[in-house]
């Protein structure tokens, strides 16, 4: 009996796992649960430190013998942070620039990807290559010339100045184009024969079918705009135009090392909205990102 047949026979017979295999499985289960615990601790302890820091009094924070828990729930730090800097204004600025920026990005990703896949145009591949070129120029590399452009247009310290340079999108367009290409062309052709224009075909057929991909790209865009730091730092010059990430770093410069409780409370102002979005969308966000990486 040759080896191959032997293997087939074994596969058919499905023998009970040998003790060594069972021991191995048990060991990997134990290691697996340790990994779960370690993972939760690695992320959880710094977060715990952040949250309890926001609730501690200065005396508890600057105690030479470390205190892990605040003695009582103290919310003064939140009030002091809110009054220490114009956080209401920072929230408004962050909401406006995030919504404008993400809306621009996602609209352009969908329309450009649709045009690249479903609209006939001579040299449309050249347009695709232009997008790929954009993908190869990270925004950080061109911050100086872009600042000069925005300054020339007198848009420094305006919402338009914060949003415009990041309003176009290459990577999202690239991913959506790949996704649209997997859709059956008949889908569009049928509706086009029925007399539907491209706008209607895009909105009522392609967008709903691609909804998971569009939603993942959209959420990532929202999160990226909310967290954006370098560009808003450069292009805002007064306190009333700062976004939240810039606002908390200014608060750190003013109060860091002296008022950790207040600074931690302010940090929570920035991260809590994103955490809420994440709690709501984590399942499909995480799997969407993973699928994007594995399937491309």
């Amino acid at each position: 009996m040759n080896a191959l047949m032997e293997r087939d026979a074994q596969l058919i017979a499905q023998p009970a796992p040998a003790p060594s295999i069972r021991a191995e499985a048990a060991l990997s289960k134990i290691l697996g649960y340790s990994a779960v615990i370690v993972a939760v601790l690695i992320i959880g302890i710094p977060v715990f430190w952040l949250v309890t820091g926001a609730l501690k009094t200065n005396r508890e924070i600057f105690n030479a013998s470390p205190q892990w828990l605040p003695s009582h729930l103290m919310l003064d730090n939140f009030a002091n942070a809110w009054n220490g800097a114009p956080f209401g204004r920072y929230y408004i600025n962050s909401f406006i620039t995030t919504i404008l920026g993400a809306a621009c990005e996602i609209t352009m990703a969908v329309t450009t990807a649709y045009a690249l896949v479903f609209v006939r145009f001579p040299k449309r591949d050249w347009v695709f290559v232009l997008l790929l070129l954009a993908l190869m120029v990270p925004e950080e590399v061109v911050i100086v010339p872009n600042y000069l452009t925005i300054a020339n247009w007198r848009l420094v310290n305006t919402y338009a100045g914060i949003v415009l340079p990041g309003a176009s999108i290459a990577f999202g367009t690239f991913l959506l184009r790949q996704y649209f290409r997997t859709l059956p062309p008949d889908l569009i052709d049928a509706s086009r024969v029925d007399g539907a224009g491209h706008v209607r075909a895009m909105i009522s057929i392609v967008a709903p079918v691609a909804a998971p991909a569009v939603a993942t790209a959209g959420l990532l865009s929202v999160v990226a705009k909310w967290n954006d730091y370098l560009w808003p730092l450069i292009v805002t010059t007064t306190s009333d135009m700062r976004t939240l990430p810039i606002g908390i770093s200014w608060l750190l410069d003013q109060e860091g090392n002296t008022e950790w409780g207040v600074v931690m409370a302010a940090t929570l102002f920035v991260v809590v909205p994103v955490i809420l979005v994440f709690l709501y969308a984590q399942r499909f966000l995480v799997s969407g990102i993973a699928a994007g990486a594995v399937k491309g």
Binding site: A39, V40, P46, F62, I246, F278, V286
Partner: peptide, 30 residues
């Protein structure tokens, strides 16, 4: 565990940096 481990990826780098300054503080950090 997967989601918890993933969560810092979507948090503001500025906020994370600030929290870690406090964590690293040699006199009263974590």
């Amino acid at each position: 565990a997967r989601s918890i481990l993933f969560s810092p990826h979507i948090l503001s780098g500025a906020a994370i940096a600030i929290v870690w300054i406090y964590i690293f503080d040699p006199r009263f950090g974590l």
